[in-house]
Design a protein around this nucleic acid. Structure first.
Length: 439
RNA sequence: GCCGGGGUGGGGUAGUGGAUAUCCUUGGGGACUGUGGAUCCCCGGACCCGGGUUCAAUUCCCGGACCCGGCCCCA
């Protein structure tokens, strides 16, 4: 019985070796693709001054962070997201040649009620591109996100939904809204609430009644990114002077080169962060059963808030919690059997040194090798080898010592061959390489 | 912060207002002193916590924490 005080905290997870192996596959896939795109990995503190997050959000965020006072009375918090930290890192190194391409895979914390797709501590992949203010940059970021999902065996199983903060705000202005920022959260909730509620809240937030139908029809339909004008044509909303529409169409065009064709314009994609200024995007599983797998956008003003130095930026983040749910539901969550290992078994206390010597030779050769730390029956050692899923066992005893050899047992079929020690090691090395290539 | 549901060994379960709490599995050991996965044997391990009702609570009632899901919020 475990003491109550030893229970892990609510909303926190722990990962045993098999679970950690699966997660490692996710990390590695993300790293691999990031590097293909020229992104370099960074890391930063897990604890920061609460002010770093107040700067861009507001006081209500305090309730949603793991924040507290340290022994010096400072208000600090476990970081809930990457962007402020990454932005500061960039601001601190003004000499860095741009564009700067960075990614990270860190832990984050949010003090919320745990539920499906949400934990209080989670891993989140984050990528940012600093410097360029261009459609190419936006497309690269979405393209990178898509390439990572593809690498995770999700190709054809997700959809991207895109919107644009500046665009939406201008459209809202055309519709007679005086404070577009107040309307954004209502758009965000469109798919999660009833039409009546949405209409009521739109009126509440200052959308003129005569414009409600136009706005709803845009929210309802959505469109392919290149057909976005058609969507508005039916509504009678005049798009002249809104240059962002060209931007969105060009991003859509560029994404074709990334083999991403069916990008959807969706006015309900808002993203909660207030710092987004341009394009915003999210990726969902095709059934739309889950929260967004990833999300991001352009934030051109955040750097000037932090450093006083204006640098355009676009980025996105992908948490491991929703990703795991989506991948498991699509049977693409990696379930491997672990690494190739060899267990060295010995038949007596006298042969243990001989066995240990072989074990260490294997390790020097780069072959993961285990040996029983206790003198136990061969039967038990083989049982352990089997349970630890060793692909081969090496068995040594008086017979092998006499001929300076080692017996190799294939754990899959029980076949055995005795080689001279060096030959045995070479044999296992070859088998290991075949296994590695087979993966 | 709010709402709904849930709880018996590590996992899965049976059962009960009263006696040594059932079974499977997992774990440890052995039968098997040079051969794993089978079989058999032995061992370890549980009624979430607190209060109430009662002669007696794992069982009924209340509260709390926790787990699952939803709301709020979502950075």
């Amino acid at each position: 019985m475990i003491l109550k005080s030893m229970d892990k905290l609510r909303g926190f997870r722990e990962f045993y070796p098999d679970e950690m192996r699966s997660r490692r596959v996710i990390f590695d896939a993300s790293r691999k693709v990031s590097q293909l795109f020229g992104y370099e990995e960074i890391s930063f503190p897990s604890v920061e001054s609460l002010d770093l997050f107040r700067m861009k959000s507001g006081e209500e965020i305090v309730d949603q962070t793991y924040s507290f006072r340290d022994k010096g009375g400072r208000e600090i918090t476990l970081i809930p997201e990457a962007t402020p930290s990454v932005s500061r890192m960039l601001a601190e190194r003004k000499e860095l040649p741009r564009p700067v391409r960075w990614f990270s895979f860190e832990k984050y914390w949010r003090y919320e009620e745990p539920q499906a797709g949400r934990a209080r501590e989670f891993y989140q992949y984050n990528a940012d591109l600093f410097g360029p203010y261009s459609e190419m940059a936006d497309a690269e970021m979405i393209g990178l996100a898509g390439a990572i999902l593809n690498e995770l065996s999700l190709k054809g199983k997700y959809s991207f939904r895109v919107s644009h903060r500046g665009f939406i705000e201008k459209v809202l202005s055309k519709l007679g809204v005086s404070n577009p920022a107040a309307v954004l959260p209502v758009l965000d909730r469109y798919h999660k609430t009833t039409l009546e509620t949405t209409v009521a809240r739109l009126i509440e937030t200052g959308v003129p009644e005569k414009s409600i139908d136009q706005l709803i029809s845009i929210l309802k339909e959505g469109s392919k990114l290149d057909k976005i004008e058609d969507l508005f044509a039916d509504t009678g909303i005049d798009l002249t002077g809104i240059e962002e529409i060209g931007w969105l169409k060009r991003v859509g065009k560029l994404l074709e080169s990334y083999s991403m064709k069916d990008i959807v314009f969706d006015a309900s994609v808002v993203r909660g962060f207030t710092y987004y200024t341009g394009i915003v995007f999210e990726a969902f599983d095709l059934k739309g059963e889950n929260r967004a797998i990833l999300g991001g956008g352009r934030y051109d003003n955040l750097l000037s808030v932090i450093s006083g130095n204006s640098i355009p930026a676009v980025g996105f983040a992908m948490g491991d919690v929703v990703l795991e749910i989506v991948m498991k539901s699509l049977n693409t969550w990696p379930e491997d059997d672990g690494a190739f290992t060899v267990t060295v078994c010995f038949t007596s206390g006298e042969s243990s040194i001989y066995a240990l010597d072989i074990c260490n030779k294997l390790r020097k050769r780069g072959i993961p090798a285990l040996i029983s730390p206790e003198t136990r029956s061969l039967s038990t050692q083989l049982k352990d080898a089997s349970r630890h899923r060793s692909r081969f066992s090496v068995i040594v005893g008086d017979k092998e010592i006499a001929q300076k050899g080692a017996t190799i047992r294939d754990m899959a079929d029980g076949s055995q061959v005795t080689f001279p020690v060096l030959e045995a090691i070479k044999f296992l090395d070859k088998k290991r390489n075949i296994t590695l290539l087979g993966q």
